[in-house]
Amino acid sequence: MAHIVEVSDADDPRVDDFRDLSRADRRPDRPGGRGLVIAEGVVVVERLLASPYPVRALFGVRRRIDELADALVDLDAPAYVTDADVMAQVVGFHLNRGVLAVADRAPAVDPADLIGRSRNLAVLEGVGDHENLGALFRNAAALGVDGVLLGAGCSDPLYRRSVRVSMGHVLRVPFTSLETWPDGVKLLQDNGFRVAALTPRSDSIPLRAAGLEHGRVAVLLGSEGPGLTDEAIAAADLAVRIPMSGDVDSLNVATAGAIAFHAMNGG
């Protein structure tokens, strides 16, 4: 069972992992920081507790810690209980969700291992917006994607905002980085994957005609603005577009991803 510890002093060093999250230079989940995984809210904290990430501690108001009682039975870590005012002083802002948890990172997944055990994958290039990244992971979890491969220019999926927007699903969808880009696409092809680059180009194949539901398939998705680079599209086996009406020429990358993921699973 988690060790319940009362905290009444905002300067208590035991809650330093949760301190000053509103200041970019102090956030432990920022690049160059301590690299901790931070979960916010009861639902996301529960998913962190059920994930492979080693939980260091929880910090929250009594009501939220009590809501997590069943999930804390097997946890050997402190759960710091405080009031909303002290919590706001520590965190740096008022947290409506009332509870946080921090964890160390799990060991990185080997790309070859993830590819070897998957049937369908999402491959991202230049997805730098943390909210879009989190939404992509939530869509991947909901629509049966086995994992996510990160190409050049992607943000950290374990950034606090990405974890929150994904509703914690980034903690359960396996992901890893491809060390070379776009040459890393060949690793997929060497393992029997057909790689489809999602692009609005008029000469690309309409989604319904692409047959993404057959065999092992990886869908390439590009950045929110320019989309996939010419090099990434050239490395793919085929270019696929989502037909659109009117003057709309593109979709938000998370929305486009959801449509493609649904197609990969026979939707």
Rank of each mutant, 00 (worst) to 15 (best):
A239M: 02
D237T: 10
A103N: 06
S155R: 10
L21V: 03
V42W: 12
D76C: 11
S202R: 15
P52L: 07
F175M: 04
G92N: 12
A234T: 14
Q89E: 14
S162K: 00
V248R: 15
L136S: 03
A140I: 00
V5C: 08
D190V: 07
V15F: 14
L187P: 02
G35V: 00
A260P: 13
P52F: 02
V61E: 15
Y159S: 08
S166D: 07
L133G: 03
P111H: 06
I65C: 02
R30N: 05
V127A: 11
I65M: 02
S8A: 08
R23N: 12
R62E: 15
M244Y: 01
V148G: 05
E231W: 07
V240G: 08
L251W: 09
L100E: 06
H262I: 05
L58M: 00
L133T: 04
N191T: 07
R19F: 08
G168L: 01
A122C: 05
R26W: 13
N191K: 08
L136Q: 04
L178D: 11
F261S: 13
E213L: 11
P13S: 04
L198A: 08
L136E: 01
D183R: 00
R164T: 13
P200V: 12
L171F: 05
L187K: 03
G227T: 01
L220M: 04
S202C: 13
A57Y: 14
G266V: 02
D104P: 07
V73R: 09
V127R: 10
I259N: 14
E125L: 03
R160F: 13
L187Q: 07
R30E: 06
A88M: 06
P226W: 06
